[in-house]
Simulated scan of single mutants.
Amino acid sequence: MTTEFRVDPPTAAGERELLQGFLDFHRSTLLWKVSGLTGEQLVQRSVEPSSMSLIGLVRHLSEVEKYWFHRALAQAPSEPKFWTDEHPDGDFDLADPARAEQDLQDFREIVRTSDELAARFQLDDTFARPGHPGDYSLRYLYLHLIEEYARHNGHADFLRERIDGLTGE
Rank of each mutant, 00 (worst) to 15 (best):
D125Q: 11
G90F: 03
H152T: 01
I163M: 08
L30Y: 01
K66I: 07
E109D: 15
T2E: 13
H152E: 03
F5N: 07
A72F: 04
S53K: 02
E86M: 12
R71Q: 15
P80G: 11
I163S: 04
T126Y: 07
T3N: 13
I163G: 03
Y149Q: 02
G90T: 04
L143G: 12
L141S: 04
A98C: 11
L54F: 05
A119M: 07
E86G: 10
G165P: 01
V58M: 04
S62Y: 02
T113I: 11
A100G: 06
K66V: 07
S78R: 10
R160N: 05
D96V: 05
F127R: 06
L42S: 01
E169T: 14
W32G: 00
P80T: 12
G21W: 01
P77M: 11
V43C: 05
S28L: 02
Y142T: 00
A150C: 13
S137F: 08
A150Q: 06
V34Q: 02
P10L: 13
T29K: 05
E63V: 03
F92G: 00
S137G: 13
E109C: 08
Y142G: 02
A156M: 06
D115C: 12
H144W: 10
H87N: 15
T113D: 14
F22M: 10
K81Q: 13
H70R: 08
F127V: 05
F127D: 06
W83V: 12
M1K: 09
L23D: 01
E169Q: 14
R120G: 04
G131F: 14
Q102G: 08
A100N: 07
P80A: 15
D124W: 12
H70S: 09
T167C: 05
A95E: 02
L23Q: 03
E148T: 11
V7F: 03
G134N: 11
E109L: 12
E15D: 10
R71C: 09
A150N: 08
D8I: 01
W83F: 12
D93N: 14
F69L: 11
E63G: 13
R139G: 03
T3L: 10
V43N: 00
Y136H: 15
W83L: 12
F5C: 02
D106V: 11
M1H: 10
F22R: 01
L54K: 00
D157W: 06
P97T: 04
H60A: 03
R108N: 10
E161Y: 08
T38V: 10
M1G: 10
T126Q: 15
D135E: 14
R112E: 14
P9V: 04
T113E: 14
Q44W: 14
R6Y: 11
H132W: 12
E148A: 04
A72Y: 03
Y67T: 05
V58H: 03
F25L: 00
Q44Y: 09
A12Q: 14
R16D: 08
D125A: 14
F158A: 12
